[in-house]
Design a binder for these strands. Structure first.
Ligand SMILES: [Mn+2]
Ligand SMILES: [Mn+2]
Ligand SMILES: [Zn+2]
Ligand SMILES: [Zn+2]
Lengths: 135, 135
DNA sequence: CAATAGTTTAGAATAACTCTAAACTGCTGC
DNA sequence: GCAGCAGTTTAGAGTTATTCTAAACTATTG
């Protein structure tokens, strides 16, 4: 069950501890389409799953995974970070009412007319967020 | 000096108090190109200007101005909201190192390939954020 | 299996706000 | 002009998301 998680941590150079394995498993196993979670969401899920993990470790782990390129952080609202298991180039639909994030593949999208990048700077990433509300 | 600020508050249906006039003045007067401020930034600026305002009022005022359409809120990093005096349709360049936000006019930009809007939802706004780092 | 570097964790600390309730002030009407 | 009141301000307490601390634990290596 945790074989994929184990390999993932190894490849990322992260020591495969019980907590990291559990969290990686929850995040990645059986979720081919990618997930978007907050620290609290993942913490609740881990607890519900019977895992013994602290909230501090969930935060630490999410940040470490992000640093290692296993996750990416998406900021759509003040006050809470969302972590995204889809690290490929993509954008988001954000449902303001429910807080749901849905992926939009980047190569279906074309952005024209972006200004020239200032000298000495480079593009780290381009985020497109389509904010939706109930009609 | 505060005539423009006075009219602006009046038109927005906000009672022109000393604090609101001062903050509106700092935000809008002599800044035709628009500004991006955090609550702490505006608070410091007001204090430096000799204004007697509390931080709570700065927050209240920024939220009220936003509600009234005089400002808009931009979220680029977890933990802090930026308020934007440019309420027109536009996007942003975000310098990750310095935290600076720079406007990108929306009608210079064209976004193609956005997915269909789900039934029952409507687009509240589309945010494009080009994140830049030092090369 | 010992040694140790890396990890986890409870609880304290911080940062960015928001709330409360009391004091104050911009309008309105007289 | 001023009373009266709704709307506003504010100090300080409270909240929430997140990070820090430093002590206890564990994966890895020899
Ligand atoms: Mn972070
Ligand atoms: Mn707000
Ligand atoms: Zn995503
Ligand atoms: Zn702007």
């Amino acid at each position: 069950m945790g074989a994929a998680a184990y390999a993932r941590l190894r490849d990322a150079g992260l020591r495969p501890t019980r907590q990291r394995l559990e969290l990686a498993s929850l995040l990645f196993d059986g979720h081919p389409r990618g997930r978007h979670v907050t620290a609290e969401m993942l913490f609740a899920e881990a607890r519900a799953d019977g895992a013994r993990v602290s909230l501090a470790t969930v935060y630490n782990t999410l940040n470490q995974f992000t640093g290692a390129g296993l996750l990416r952080e998406v900021v759509v609202e003040p006050g809470t970070s969302h972590f995204d298991t889809n690290t490929g180039d993509h954008h988001h639909l954000y449902f303001e009412d429910s807080g749901e994030l849905r992926d939009v593949d980047a190569d279906r999208i074309e952005i024209k007319g972006l200004p020239p990048i200032p000298r000495g700077a480079e593009v780290a990433r381009v985020d497109v967020i389509v904010r939706l509300r109930r009609k």
